[in-house]
Amino acid sequence: MKACRMPIGFAVVILVFTTVVKAESESDVRFCDPHHLFHVVIPSGWIFQAGESSSHLLVFYGPEHDQLIYIEYFPEIAFSDPMDFAANVLEHYSADYGLPKFELVRELEPIDLGGVKAALAEYDYLGRIERTECRVFVIIDQIGLTITLSEAKPHYAVSKAQFDLILADWGWEVSP
């Protein structure tokens, strides 16, 4: 029995090591947010845009196309459920004064983000060009966060796959 445990334990260690190495391979960067709420692995080629960021907004540009990820903080949020938070925002986005040519491409749905309840929606709108956004809404430590991938509509699927990897590695600095 003891002999059997050894290879299993070894396999687990290798698996864990592989996962970490894969997530942070080459020039991937582990990014801890300035408010000490979360950490995330930023893939190689993505660059933090200090000039466009502020204390309540973090902006990253991707290496290709029109890739953009931005994270916004809302310290005084009245909502406690991310689905309510998201529904309220989408109501404004879809209103006649909202985003031009707004169209929901994926209904709002609950997801798990690093062990915390979150809400995700995908939609198209017309900015300078036709864009698709995937927006995740989460409330942690009474602070609202939106994590958004924004990309030109034709390239969205490719970028979304990268965004999914980023979300999969999402970790919290505070206990949920």
């Binding site: 466009e52 953009l68 309220n88 300078r128 927006r135 924004s150």
Partner: peptide, 13 residues
């Protein structure tokens, strides 16, 4: 504003 409405930003050229 009573409710927080996240920004919608585009990549600058």
């Amino acid at each position: 504003l009573a409710d927080p409405i996240p920004q919608v930003i585009e990549r600058k050229q």
